[in-house]
Design a protein around this nucleic acid. Structure first.
Lengths: 109, 109
DNA sequence: CTGAATCCATATTGATACTG
DNA sequence: CAGTATCAATATGGATTCAG
């Protein structure tokens, strides 16, 4: 349970799942689609998602090789609950920012 | 957006929110309710949740002092989307474990 | 193009000891 | 009881380099 949510809560994992929700992407396309992710973290996060069966990897034996990543059926099922959470974050970010400002103001006294 | 989800994805934050969902708890009660969390991480996570306005802290000026933590109205609103994700994790953990076993078996060849 | 391997700086965390 | 302070161990992430 904990380690399942650990991945869900991972910054890059959620971003990658969101991007792959629209359509399959190649490695380099993901690199461009997710600003600030390093090649290293992209590889590692994709491996984790693949290991968990949320993403699948297809290699096209062209030269140079192309690799496409797509959501699996299982991976698609997480989009709804994940979307619920992102919607909450969207609804609440104003309130959260306000709370942070209040808190920080009081801390600095 | 990212930093909002960062907290949501945090292992201890989600656990604490779940525990506080049932009823307010005192510091030491939380320490007992969440196995393996250290005093240090409990303090820090509670501060973060308080700063974000999801949890509030009430000090009773007794001797020795007692401090109670409870969900705020905002904090209560996250329970539903969070529950959705935990339900997903619950539904999917078998499939995920199977996927991991498959993946690890192939990796070890 | 896709990725593995290495090196290194920094961030997180646990353990411990101390305080109001 | 409810923290804070400090230190040491570890984990994490970026940059770089190399390879199929």
């Amino acid at each position: 349970m904990r380690d399942v949510l650990d991945r869900v809560g991972d910054k890059w994992s959620t971003l990658l799942l969101s991007v792959l929700a629209t359509r399959p992407h190649r490695f380099s396309a993901l690199l461009r689609a997710v600003p600030d992710i390093s090649k290293r973290m992209l590889t590692q996060t994709l491996r984790d998602l693949e290991r968990d069966g949320l993403v699948e990897r297809e290699v096209f034996p062209t030269k140079p090789p192309a690799v496409e990543y797509r959501l699996t059926a299982l991976g698609a099922t997480i989009l709804e609950p994940l979307g619920g959470l992102m919607a909450w974050a969207d609804r609440s970010h104003a309130a959260i920012r306000a709370a942070r400002a209040r808190f920080d103001a009081l801390s600095g006294l």
